[in-house]
Design a protein around this nucleic acid. Structure first.
Ligand code: SF4
Ligand code: SF4
Lengths: 151, 151
DNA sequence: CTCTATCAGGACTAGCTTAGTCCTCTTACT
DNA sequence: AGTAAGAGGACTAAGCTAGTCCTGATAGAG
């Protein structure tokens, strides 16, 4: 279905959440606010910290802070940070796997162009772009469940 | 890793193979020539036939034939035929799944733009484009194993 | 008319990948 | 000290994917 992993999805949402509210926020706090499972959010944040997208502050009153403004974070970077390199097929550079059919496949190596097109498209859009020019999210009557009760 | 399914990969290779050689080819024949597992190729061809990308001819001396020239088949169409609609996240139209966090997620609905960018990119490139403007597949020294012995 | 090569359509299985959980150690503020 | 937080990893369960196989329909060949 050409879906990106839920982890990547979470990562983007977490980054967007970090841009709102206090500069430094804790993993459990973000999990609470976004209704995502706590340990999973923690895991995502650790990965993001390892990639340098967020900065971690340890110790009591610690938490995570955005390393860069959202306008400087292209979507592609988040995807590669969580999911690894964008490699549509096994016959483009990023792949750990090798394709058996490479010798007999009429398409060997020719996915590169498609792959690059997608990489470019994803590099051209920043997280700030996604948030700013918002067409009202009126795709399918969002549930709009109240989260105040949880907080 | 943002990889498309191997089935889709196979489908594109099969279509490209169909464009070469005799107009009508059988599933086992294609499998033999491309070194892909036979039943899998058959499965892919059935799906492609169901989507109208190839036309099937039943009975003895039957096989599959391209319904359209490769120049009229965008990559996106093959992907949707095999993998289903392109839906990066659960909060865009094509998804059978619904996202739990939609009410509290700061990104709800905002993936649409990214999704559309990818759809456009994949719709702009046809299979003929992939084959024609071929940068030599010198990505990593293709094995070039002889398949004549198998035939 | 019969035989056979081929596709149609599905059920089924094994393996892999992913999401999610949990534990222990380190860090640094109060 | 004591404690609130992250670092880093091992672990598990569920879901999905690739691949296999079977039965039936079709239509050309002889
Ligand atoms: S060589 Fe062919 S089958 Fe293998 S990954 Fe590339 S396009 Fe797909
Ligand atoms: S609502 Fe948020 S978490 Fe859910 S699919 Fe959309 S972006 Fe991802």
């Amino acid at each position: 279905m050409l879906r990106l992993s839920k982890m990547t999805d979470y990562a983007v949402a977490v980054l967007a959440h970090l841009a709102r509210g206090p500069a430094v926020q804790t993993a459990p706090g973000i999990a609470l606010a976004t209704l995502m499972p706590e340990p999973t959010v923690a895991k995502v944040l650790k990965t993001l910290a390892a990639s340098g997208l967020v900065t971690s502050l340890r110790g009591a009153r610690g938490g995570y802070r955005l390393s860069r403004p959202l306008a400087d974070i292209p979507v592609a970077e988040v995807i590669t940070a969580i999911d690894g390199p964008i490699a549509l097929t096994a016959c483009v550079e990023g792949s750990p796997t090798v394709c058996e059919q490479q010798g007999s496949c009429p398409m060997s190596g020719r996915w590169l162009r498609v792959n690059d097109a997608i990489r470019e498209a994803l590099s051209a859009i920043t997280l700030a772009d996604m948030l700013e020019s918002t067409p009202p999210p009126a795709i399918a009557a969002p549930p709009m469940m109240a989260i105040e009760g949880v907080l």
